[in-house]
């Protein structure tokens, strides 16, 4: 190596390596910096607004004052109901794809459908929600309609992450179970699911963060600009944090900056917190594998 290290050819190559490294590093920094800057800005401008009163009271005076409590409650309703719908369907769909389906045209079609479900624009999901749940099934604009729309939209997240978690369970475990006469379902229930539950939870948590942040799909299906009372059932309309941020930053005049920044900060904190939990769980699993 020593002989070549000083040749011009080698030096030039070394130079190109350094330049490439610098450029790639710069690109990555260009991605990372805005995120940090934006988060910093939100925290800096929004933090002063955060108070128990802001979190736990309703907006007043045409939403130019007061808090965001109804929006927080509404988001919880939407997330909870959509989770109750998409989690079981998504997990079972992943079980089907990973444990039952063979590589055939059926599997390919399902796979393609999942890719598309994830790729269809959120506003088209909204149109679907209006056409199907609000009008055709006559659920009206309600938490139910909005949650169904959100559930279908976020289904691919759960399917993909559950499938990954299931696939991480070694094939030899399944074979060992089949060899002693356990049926497919017994194998799944007693061995596969218990050993992938943490990964599945990660996916479900990610779904929560997706659903909490979405705006377009709930615009016309169940979220309302202002509802003077907290929702009592899935047939009510509700406010939502994301929708509220949209409304006060574009539709209402003279909302104090602290309120808009504060609302944005709460939404981001919620999403980041939820994501953080899922990241922690994931790294825990990696360390605590039983095999």
């Amino acid at each position: 190596m020593g002989v070549f290290a000083t040749s011009p050819e080698s030096r030039r190559r070394h130079r190109s390596q350094q330049v490439a490294f610098a450029v790639l590093l710069a690109m990555t920094v260009l991605l990372v910096l805005p995120v940090l800057a934006i988060l910093g800005m939100l925290v800096w401008r929004g933090a002063p607004a955060l108070s128990l009163e802001f979190l736990f009271t309703a907006p007043v005076r045409g939403m130019t004052a007061g808090g965001i409590w109804p929006a927080i409650v509404g988001t919880m309703w939407l997330v909870g109901v959509s989770l109750a719908i998409s989690a079981p369907i998504g997990v079972l769909a992943a079980v089907y794809l990973n444990e039952y389906a063979r590589d055939s045209w059926v599997t390919r079609v399902i796979h393609l459908a999942i890719v598309n479900l994830a790729g269809v624009p959120s506003i088209v999901h909204a149109l679907f929600g209006v056409g199907a749940f609000v009008l055709f099934f006559r659920f009206g604009t309600s938490i139910l309609s909005a949650s169904l729309t959100l559930a279908i939209m976020t289904l691919p997240v759960i399917i993909a992450s559950t499938k990954e978690a299931l696939a991480a369970v070694p094939m030899t475990f399944r074979e060992a179970c089949w060899n002693v006469g356990a049926s497919r379902w017994q194998t799944i229930w007693h061995v596969v699911l218990p050993n992938s539950i943490a990964g599945i939870l990660t996916g479900i948590i990610l779904q929560v963060s997706r659903a909490a942040g979405e705006t377009a799909p709930i615009l016309f299906t169940g979220a309302a600009v202002f509802v003077p009372f907290l929702p009592q059932s899935v047939n009510d309309q509700c406010m939502a944090l994301s929708m509220h941020l949209f409304t006060i930053s574009t539709q209402v005049q003279s909302v104090p900056q602290s309120i808009t920044y504060g609302t944005a900060l709460v939404l981001v904190l919620l999403v980041v917190l939820v994501n953080g939990v899922s990241i922690v769980i994931r790294s825990r699993i990696r360390r605590r594998r039983k095999w």
Binding site: F173, C177, N179, V180, G181, V191, N195, W291
Partner: peptide, 17 residues
């Protein structure tokens, strides 16, 4: 039931977790 009539030992030991 068939599989319960047969004991199967694989090349690499598989302890279930």
């Amino acid at each position: 039931r068939l599989r319960r009539r047969i004991g199967m030992v694989a090349p690499l030991p598989v302890g279930l977790p």
